[in-house]
Each structure stands twice: as structure tokens, then as C-alpha cells.
Computed example of a mutant assay.
Amino acid sequence: MLNYFLNILVFLYVLFAFVLTPVPGLSTITNIILILLLVNLALRSFKLGLYGLNEIWFFFPIFCYMFATILWSTHQHSALISFISFSTAYLGGIAVYISLRNGGNIKSIYYGSLLASFILVYSAITTDIIITNTATNFRAAGISGNPNLMGLCLITCAFFIYSLGKKHIFNNIYPITIILFAIYTTGSRKIIIVIPFIIIYIILSKYKNIQYTKSMFLKLRKYTALLIIIPLISYIAISVTESSFAWERMLKFIEGNDSSSSVRIAMIEEGISLWKEAPIFGHGINQYRYFSFWDTYSHNNYIEIMVSSGIIGFILYYLVYFKILKYLLKSKNNEHMLLYVLMFVLLLVWEFALVSYQEKYVWIFLGISFWIAHYSKSSLILSK
């Protein structure tokens, strides 16, 4: 019975983390589901014990340190609210990992991501919540109210659907479809960056597969297929992106004619100056907005963390990334290792243009990545 409710709660948490977290008034539902999930795990620990708690020691220091920064924050009320937001995302990632270690089924995450993608796509098509830039160009925001966030959530859903689903045509084609949909509708430059990563993944994974083939005829056939698939995917991706507002924005960025990029560069420069004022301990969580000219967050995860928590917090936060990447690179599950390492690199690139340390989808990804690195045996993954 505990396993049944555990999987239901994991499914609901993943679903609502993607769909309801950014929605004012409804985001609390996600946190309620998280509390119920934690209660389920607590009950399980009393009855059966919990596996995996000692394995996630490197997650704890950043949580403790972020809490400590409230003490020297100038605006402590705001810092406390930000810490609560951070802690719910953080605990969600840990809860997902511990759930998978203690009877949770990866299907819960797959189906939660799948349903979330349907809802996000439907909301982007039907909702009136859009950001209009010109008479002909718009950025769909969907239920999230934020086009960048909707695009990032769709990409993460696509990633989980592909990496955790059975290897059949739907789980190969549908993720690519929603990625292209996200590029075309959200106008987010971050999403365009996904395309080269997909091509790199296909080349590396197929090349490795070909190397294990002994028959020269089969090798030749696979190389031929690869030479056909890569240009085909590239052509489809370019055809969609060339007519999208995201591509137009990317060209402006490359040409240096994008006002948004100029503002963000200025925010980064001011963030570096603010970090130099408190380089060791930082100004406190979410204090960039109060010390800077811009009266908002920095739009750069590296700057946000350094200003908030100094070099100590920066090291502790990215220690989590480093440790999981280290375990992934040592993993014997080569297919998933390559996929998840590339997703990590993509996330690190994204973080130059977004603040992600409070995002639930990021911590869910971290929790699943750690589980993939350790326990993704062939009998546990849908795709095998």
C-alpha cells in the first residue's frame, strides 16, 4: 500500500512541479503534494527503514548554508521567503531520489512528465496569456505566464520522456516534436541551443553503437543511416527555427542588436561588483535585487549564487553538480550516462541566462540523475 501511494505522490509531484509551480494561487498544491510525499517516506522509514539517505550527504551543506545567509541578509523577510522556495525545490529533488531508492517506479516520473507536456502544449495553444513583441511575432507563455519557463519545462519533460520511456517510435518522435513546438512558440533563445546537443547525442551514441558492430555490411548500413538521419534532423530543425521569433532574437543577439542581451550583460557586470563587496559569505539569499540598480534577480545563476552566498555558497551549490557528474561518468550505463552528461552541460550553459537554483524541475533532474548514475539497472529502466 505504501508503494502504491508513493508512486501516486511522485507522479503528482512531477506533474504539478511542471504545470502548477509558476501559477499564482495554485503553486501551493505542489508543496502540499511534497509534504504528503515526505510523510509517506517518513512512515516508510519507521516501518521498513529508508535506503539512500547516507548517499546524498553532499546535498546537505548548501541547504544549511543558504539558511545561514538569512542571518546577514539586509531584507530578511524576503530572504526567508526565497529560502522556503529554494528548500521546497531542494527537498523535492531529494524526495524523488529517495522514492526511487525505496520502491518508487520510474514510470511515475515518465507519466508525470508526459501528462505535464500535454497540458503545457494545450495551454500554449489555447490560453490568451502571451507576450506580444510586434504585430507578427509573439511569445506563448501558456499556463506558466512566462515563455522562457514554459520552454524550459517542455524541454525537461521531453528529456524525461525520451530517457525514461520505452524505446519505441512515440518516445523518439514526440520529444523532438515538443522541442520544435517550444522553439516556435516561446521565442526562447535557450531552447534553440538544444538542437546542437541533440545532434551531438545522436552522433556520439550511434557512433559508439556502430563500433560494437562486427559485420562490415552492418557497419556500412549504420553509417549510411547516420549520414541520412543527421542532415534530415538538421534540415527539419533549421526549417522550424528559421521562421521562429526565437531565431530572430538569436540573430539579433549574435549581431549585438538585442537590447535584452545588453541589459543582461550590464546585470552581470553589476553582479560581479556586488560579489566583490562580500566575496566570501555573500549578501544573503535573494539580495541581488535590493543591492542592484535593476530591482530584480540577476538572470544568471552563477551571479545570483555568488552575490547571495559568496564563494562558499557557490562551491557548495556546484558541489552537488560535480558529484553527480562524477558518478555519471563512472556509470556503466553508457547510453544514459552520455544523455544525462549532455543534459548537465546544457543546464550549465542555460544558467548563464537564467536563475535556476530555486526551480523544482532542476532539482528533480538532479535527483533522477543521481539515481541513474547509481541504480539504473536494466530491469529498472523502461527503455531497456
Rank of each mutant, 00 (worst) to 15 (best):
I311W: 11
A42P: 04
I125D: 03
G256M: 04
P279C: 02
L232Y: 08
N40R: 05
T213E: 15
N209V: 01
L36N: 00
L43E: 06
N172F: 11
A225E: 15
Y321V: 10
N301L: 01
M66W: 12
G93N: 03
Y174W: 12
M216A: 11
N40V: 04
L149G: 10
G112M: 07
M343R: 10
F197S: 04
P231G: 08
T241A: 15
Y317F: 15
Y290M: 05
S144D: 09
A246C: 11
G282Y: 04
S99I: 07
K377N: 12
Y207P: 02
A225V: 10
S261W: 01
Y212N: 15
I254T: 01
S331W: 02
L325Q: 02
Y201K: 07
N209L: 11
I229M: 12
C153T: 11
K47E: 06
Y110V: 09
I193P: 00
I173W: 11
N334T: 13
R101H: 02
D258E: 15
I70Y: 00
I119V: 15
T296Y: 05
Y207K: 06
I176D: 05
I173E: 07
I285W: 08
S123I: 09
G151N: 08
I305M: 09
F86M: 05
F197C: 01
I195D: 03
W363G: 02
I265E: 06
I238N: 13
K323V: 14
I94H: 01
L50V: 13
K377Y: 12
N31L: 05
E359A: 13
L366W: 06
F5H: 03
F18E: 04
L348F: 08
T241E: 08
A135T: 07
K166G: 09
M1F: 14
V320L: 11
Y361T: 07
K360I: 01
V263S: 03
V121T: 14
Y207R: 08
E335K: 13
Y290Q: 06
H336F: 04
S383H: 02
W363Q: 08
E269H: 03
N286I: 00
G282L: 05
M66D: 00
I192H: 07
K222W: 04
L26I: 05
G112C: 10
I265V: 15
I98S: 01
F16K: 00
L100T: 12
K323N: 13
A373T: 06
D128W: 08
E269V: 01
S378M: 04
F181E: 06
S378R: 12
S273E: 10
L339M: 14
S383N: 14
V121G: 09
L338P: 03
K214T: 13
I381K: 04
F118W: 14
I178F: 13
Y235C: 13
N40H: 03
S205G: 02
Y235W: 14
